[in-house]
């Protein structure tokens, strides 16, 4: 049985199960729990050029079937990651995909060139960040801006480039096309959904940042539909991200058109879920008499 999937030239995953940015830190903590080499790939916490402190507390709040987070992209910065975290992370024998973000096109491009080092298998660009020069509108909300940003980053890196889209657009297929036209090798679909929580006793917002992003199984049906939409518009591989907790969820995302699935919030609740998910997919393939996980990708039968 073949569980491997191809995401980009030079980026083949041994199975379609990845960690997700922001719920896996830089891998150290999980490496004490299970062999990271079992994963299809490791997606790191989002990095910026300089270290970032993040938002005031509280930063998380549970909601039914999920959570709202406003961590604020706290991270140690690209240089500290490359010198301090990457050497161990790359030793697990699975591709290291580095998530990154910036506040201007120049930031993104400079950071992409900084990440063009040995041991990083691919880079995943978070475009759900405010574009300071455009009055704070997120890069991923305007196809023209996203096209230019992707092109600028493409020009500065030899790594496979994955663009992680925001769900907060009216036509996500058009955004995927813009990213593809700019030179993206693959699309991650999608990201958290903007949300908030209010304390009715104090009349105040729960989160220190007032608003945050909703994740977890609550958003899975939304993510499933977004993946399906994107798969109809672009021919490059899609990585699903949004509430997958089980092998069943992963199979559904594959059928909708994803080539791989990131496991995010579920790993906060069940840090050992990855191995169950991977073996669950294998057993499913076996039970259906399928030779390859690619036999599932985009095979949704619609009326």
């Amino acid at each position: 049985m073949n569980t491997s999937v191809r995401i980009a030239p030079g980026l083949v995953l041994k199975n379609p199960v990845l960690s997700a940015s922001g719920t896996f830190a830089y891998g150290e903590e999980f490496s004490r729990l299970f062999d990271l080499g079992l994963l299809g790939g490791i997606v790191t916490k989002g990095l910026s050029l300089d270290p970032k402190e993040g938002n005031p507390l509280p930063r998380v709040y549970e909601t039914p079937c999920g959570l709202i987070n406003a961590i604020g992209l706290e991270n140690i910065g690209a240089d500290a990651f490359i010198s301090g975290k990457l050497p161990e992370l790359r030793s697990f024998g699975t591709p290291v995909i580095v998530n990154f973000f910036g506040s201007s096109e120049e930031d993104y491009a400079l950071l992409a060139s900084r990440l063009d080092v040995n041991g990083i298998a691919a880079i995943e660009m978070n475009v759900s960040c405010p574009n300071v020069k455009q009055g704070g509108l997120e890069f991923g909300r305007d196809p023209e801006v996203l096209f230019r940003l992707t092109g600028a980053v493409r020009a500065r890196t030899g790594k496979p480039l994955i663009v992680k889209l925001t769900p907060m657009v009216s036509d996500i297929g058009a955004m995927a096309q813009a990213a593809r036209a700019g030179g993206a090798d693959a699309i991650t679909c999608a990201n958290t959904i903007p949300a908030m929580a209010i304390d009715e006793h104090t009349w105040r917002p729960v989160l220190g940042n007032v608003t945050g992003g909703l994740s977890g199984p609550a958003i899975k049906p939304v993510a499933l539909k977004l993946v399906w939409e994107v798969s109809k518009k672009v021919d490059i591989p899609i990585i699903a991200s949004g509430g997958a907790c089980t092998w069943n969820d992963c199979v559904q995302f594959l059928l909708a058109g994803a080539s791989a699935v990131e496991i995010g919030s579920a790993s906060l609740r069940d840090p050992l879920c990855f191995t169950d998910i991977i073996t669950g997919i294998e057993h499913y393939l076996e039970s259906r008499g399928l030779d390859s996980v690619t036999d599932l990708i985009g095979k949704l039968e619609t009326p």
Binding site: T23, E29, L57, Y61, N69, E74, S267, P271
Partner: peptide, 26 residues
């Protein structure tokens, strides 16, 4: 503090200390 993971990966419970940001959980 409010925390999501409890073992150091989500950065929800980071507090400021004289030694820099520290996670309450880990």
């Amino acid at each position: 503090e409010y925390m999501a993971c409890g073992f150091g990966v989500c950065s929800a419970c980071t507090v400021k200390t004289s030694a820099g940001p520290r996670r309450v959980c880990s």
